[in-house]
Amino acid sequence: MSVATTSPAAASVRPSPLGLAWRRWKRGPGAVIGATILVIMIVGAILSPWIAPFDWNETRVGPRLVAPSAEFLFGTDLYGRDIFSRVLYGARISLSVGVATVAIALVFGSLFGVTIAYLGGRVEALGSRAIDVMLGFPPIVLAILIVAVLGVGIWTAALAVGIAGIPRFARVVRGATLSLKEQLFIDAARALGAGSRRIIGRHLLPNLTPVLIVLASLDLGSAILSTATLSFLGLGAQPPTPEWGAMLNAGREFMRYAPWTMIFPGLALFLAVMAVNLVGDRLSQVLDPKQRGRL
């Protein structure tokens, strides 16, 4: 994140836009809480092979569906697997899948949006129509339809959620580009002989970065949630993968006798999504010029 590289001290001398953004961001306590949770989760996810007390797939005959204790912090599941270790490994899956999903939507959506808006004319009219039609599908239904074709699995589920997110990105980027391309520096670039590809890549996209950061951060939470939802429905990660949604689905049957099988994976998912939303909310306030006056 380039925002963090500008130190606040330097910013107080001559406040750069990024320095100002950094200071505003710090003022929101929610964002700090969110960022803290997120950092803990990311570190936990990276270090999970070393800090998890047990192997995530190690089954035991004796301690099945054991309540949380000092040995098994979050209890054990039907096969005697340690739920804490599984939740920890699950962070790897959920976070990386979430990022991959948003990346798909971001790359394809923004390239499509910026291209049609820059080219204008009939291309733009056709492209906008395509976006409208894609938006005619409720996102979860579109994702389920794609899973129906690609087959069940964690990566196809991620791909499905990513594809379903493309029209949302495309629409916003198209709108932002339409106003951006009328500005003088684009005319100047064209007058200097820059081609479409250069103008889009070197002039339009860099100026769209704040919009893209906001969109991506606001989308990440729902992307993590949607992929977990597909896994919960049996369309995403399959057992024994320690994905949070899939673990909740497995825990459903033992809810009455062993509620911890569903409480902890769900709590992890909830905290991850909330942390991402907190940071995303704040980022959008900081980077969106329309909101600046209110801070």
């Binding site: 909740l248 825990g251 769900g266 998912l269 909830f270 909330m274 939303n277």
Partner: peptide, 25 residues
């Protein structure tokens, strides 16, 4: 707004199960 954010971040399937557990069971 904190409550609203929590509501937005809650996985429906999780809160549904918690409700069943607390009010049903």
């Amino acid at each position: 707004m904190t409550v609203a954010l929590i509501g937005l971040s809650l996985p429906s399937f999780w809160i549904g199960m918690l409700l069943i557990h607390v009010f049903g069971i």
